[in-house]
């Protein structure tokens, strides 16, 4: 297999170079703190802080979700590797405004260990930290073992809503409660058509035959439900949404949802829109009301081909936070239902 053509300088310096570029793309709204953290410049005193983060290489998340009514900062690891405890500590200190810090990130062993060590270091400096793990991938473990599930693209609506809530709530308890609520009302499923590659080696992160689809596969190529023969957009969309509907969270007629159709990288916007067409047809048949749609490549794995669907079920409180405007390098929206 040939090495993908990539625009790189030093293949081992990708994470550092992309972070520099990201900070410049924020045009002064954010700054680099410590070794590899990005932090909003204006965070009001007394605000309950929201910190996200994880390995790099999945851009624009997580570090692109720092912004207005979104996260206050992100701790950034190397490509596909969790940030080290000292990076987490630097970011925590930089976002802390005296009212505690919520860590909100995907449930991967490396992230949990390093963020936990970062939290222990922060607590040594009298900063109160709580953690909410994102585990929206229904294909990664049964509903009875949610703590074994991976965090995938559902992080976008989850961080969006927690970020809005963090502007309004007065305590870390409240922010933790809202983050858990939106996490528990979000379900995602992904698939893989072709692998992405690790920039430093050029090697694919997994192997998949040309005529097969990895149904339920994770964003690093982790095994999901299994491999199925390549099929049409409509058929695959149906199979994927069926996995979400078979899970323990009920989506009933009249429920309002955020629908997020994500590309893992190489899958084109054209394909996402074709899949969105079928997804909306299926949701309409079930009487599920789409409050707002997100279509785009926000949670990627280099040039991996594949899509994911995420559904977040809204109640009045979550809808209020969803409807607040937000702005960042990853995702921006106007007030209400407008994109």
């Amino acid at each position: 297999m040939s090495v993908p053509k990539k625009l790189l300088n030093d293949p081992n310096a990708c994470a550092a170079e992309l972070l520099d570029g990201l900070i410049l793309a924020y045009d002064g709204q954010c700054e680099k703190v410590g070794k590899a953290s990005i932090v909003k410049k204006s965070i009001p005193d007394g605000k309950v802080a929201l910190l996200v983060g994880g390995g790099s290489g999945h851009e624009p998340i997580y570090h692109g979700l720092v912004g207005t009514n979104l996260a206050d900062g992100a701790a950034c690891g190397d490509i596909f590797a969790a940030p080290s405890p000292d990076i987490v500590l630097d970011a925590t200190k930089a976002v802390h405004r005296g009212n505690g810090v919520l860590f909100l990130y995907g449930n991967y062993a490396g992230d949990v260990m390093n963020f936990d060590m970062g939290a222990e270091l922060a607590e040594d400096e009298d900063i109160e930290v709580r953690t909410v793990l994102i585990w929206d991938d229904v294909a990664s473990a049964p509903p009875t073992k949610k703590e074994d599930r991976r965090g995938i693209a559902g992080l976008v609506p989850i961080v969006k809503i927690a970020g809005a809530a963090s502007q309004v709530v007065e305590s870390l308890d409240e922010l933790e409660r809202v983050a858990i609520k939106v996490r528990d009302n979000t379900r995602s499923v992904g698939c893989a058509l072709a692998p992405g590659s690790i920039p430093a080696t050029g090697k694919p992160t997994f192997d998949l035959a040309d005529d097969m689809v990895g149904l339920g596969m994770g964003i690093h190529g982790e095994r999901g439900v299994g491999e199925i023969p390549m099929c049409s957009a409509d058929e695959l969309t149906g199979k994927m949404l069926e996995l979400i509907f078979a899970d323990d969270l009920e989506f009933a007629s009249g429920d309002e949802v955020i629908l997020f159709v994500n590309s893992l990288g190489a899958t084109t916007h054209m394909e996402l829109l074709i899949c969105n067409r079928k997804a909306r047809e299926i949701l309409a048949e079930k009487g599920i009301i789409v409050h707002q749609t997100i279509v785009g490549p926000l949670v990627g794995c280099q040039e991996m081909a594949g899509i994911s669907f995420s559904l977040t079920k809204l109640d009045d409180e979550l809808k209020k936070y969803w409807d607040m405007p937000c702005q960042s390098a990853c995702y921006s929206k106007m007030e209400g239902r407008q994109s």
């Binding site: 590797a81 080290s84 405890p85 000292d86 990076i87 490396g110 260990m113 390093n114 060590m117």
Partner: peptide, 12 residues
């Protein structure tokens, strides 16, 4: 190792 690696490997 911990501060240069990150990831699960750096931690363990």
């Amino acid at each position: 190792m911990m501060s240069s690696m990150g990831g699960a490997s750096g931690a363990v």
